[in-house]
């Protein structure tokens, strides 16, 4: 590949794949090429970023510098020397179990203080975006 070397910022949920590194470098003339290179360097990255149709997942945004590639040419957007790429997935963490658990959000009010769901931390190992 003849692309330039580009700095790529890796979000926390993907750092397990990069040996904990928050910033890596990879080559590519376009974002697509860059992600292919990343996949070779850090197998598994691509599966996290693309859906089965080969499109970027809709809860993951990729920025070249501060610009979202969806508002440029998407994966075909070209990269130039000095560009920095950030991968920014949606995150939802915040308060604990605040007002609306997913299973209750559409229903009329429930009796107060239902038991919070018990989550098996080991189950997350099976997730596509493991931690």
């Amino acid at each position: 590949m003849t692309g330039t070397s580009i700095l790529v910022r890796i979000p926390t949920p993907l750092r397990r794949l990069t040996g904990g590194q928050g910033e890596v470098t990879a080559e590519g003339r376009t974002v697509q090429e860059l992600l292919e290179t990343l996949e070779r360097q850090f197998p598994g990255v691509k599966e996290r970023l693309y859906d089965e149709a080969g499109q970027l997942r809709r809860f993951v945004n990729i920025y070249i510098n501060d610009e979202d590639i969806r508002f440029a040419q998407g994966l075909e957007t070209t990269l130039k020397k000095g560009d920095e790429v950030s991968i920014v997935p949606a995150i939802a963490g915040g308060s604990s179990d605040v007002g609306a658990r997913a299973e209750a959000i559409n229903r009329p009010p429930l009796p107060p203080h239902p038991e919070p769901p018990r989550v098996d931390p080991l189950a997350s190992k099976e997730l596509i975006w493991p931690v």
């Binding site: 945004n61 963490g93 604990s96």
Partner: peptide
Amino acid sequence: CLYPEPPPPGMIPSCQEAGVLGVLA
């Protein structure tokens, strides 16, 4: 506009599963 769709259920672990540095909140 930022994220047209959320991850499908179970695709990203919650804070409860993943942990969070308290002071970050």
